[in-house]
């Protein structure tokens, strides 16, 4: 019992040291990169790409999509003013990585890719980062220090942009500007949308 306990604590110590080493290494690399200024001047030139990406995340269906809701405009505002410099870099680098991936695999930029190619690209990036997120402790430390990875970042910005836009609130969701009453237990109607504001 005692021996097992000691072993456990040694394992734990080993794991803690390993995590610290990895984090320190990651920190050093990241900080070195961070020391270089983020060039946001390119951001606005990428509007077409951001437009397409947000529309793929929230497409037009029987309700408006991201383009209808002008989500790309909001995403760019947020990248410029509403997220940390780490995430700014992640975002700019992420856009580049997508185009580089497309050039390598399809010999053209994302916005000129076919529908299927685009799906492949996004699926690749989503899955890649989804896997990293599944290593819970690692992703928790990493997100705390450096912010969200690219795909979750653009997806969350898209969601916020859409769900707070006029089109998203009033058509994509249910918007109740002045409720007047509080009804604590209503029967959910078929296809009823969630409330836009809490």
């Amino acid at each position: 019992m005692n021996g097992e306990k000691r072993l456990n604590s040694m394992n734990r110590r080993g794991a803690v040291i390993a995590i610290i080493l990895v984090v320190v290494l990651a920190l050093t690399v990241k900080w070195w990169r961070w020391a270089m200024p983020v060039r946001l001047s390119d951001l606005r030139e990428k509007k077409a790409l951001i437009d397409e990406l947000t529309e793929m995340i929230i497409p037009r269906t029987d309700t408006p999509g991201a383009k209808d809701a002008k989500v790309a405009e909001f995403v760019m505002e947020m990248v410029e003013h509403g997220i940390s410099s780490f995430e700014q870099r992640t975002f700019i680098d992420g856009l580049k990585a997508i185009d580089i991936y497309c050039l390598n695999h399809f010999q053209r930029e994302f916005i000129t890719c076919t529908e299927k190619e685009r799906m492949d690209v996004l699926t690749h990036f989503e899955r890649d980062e989804h896997w990293m997120e599944s290593v819970y402790l690692w992703s928790k430390i990493k997100n705390k220090l450096f912010g969200r990875p690219f795909f979750p970042l653009i997806r969350q910005l898209t969601v916020i942009g859409y769900c707070t836009s006029e089109a998203g609130c009033t058509k994509g969701l249910a918007y109740d500007y002045i409720p007047m009453q509080y009804e604590p237990c209503t029967v959910l109607e078929k296809g009823q949308k969630a409330w836009a504001t809490a």
Binding site: I58, R155, V159, L173, Q192, K193, A194, A196
Partner: peptide
């Protein structure tokens, strides 16, 4: 409360039509 987009964006994976449907209905 029932989950809405504010909570769902933290845990929903994927993208596209299915993602949007899930995002916009009461959780």
């Amino acid at each position: 409360s029932r989950d809405s987009w504010q909570n769902k964006m933290e845990y929903l994976s994927g993208f596209g039509k299915k993602f949007k449907d899930e995002l916009t209905k009461p959780g």
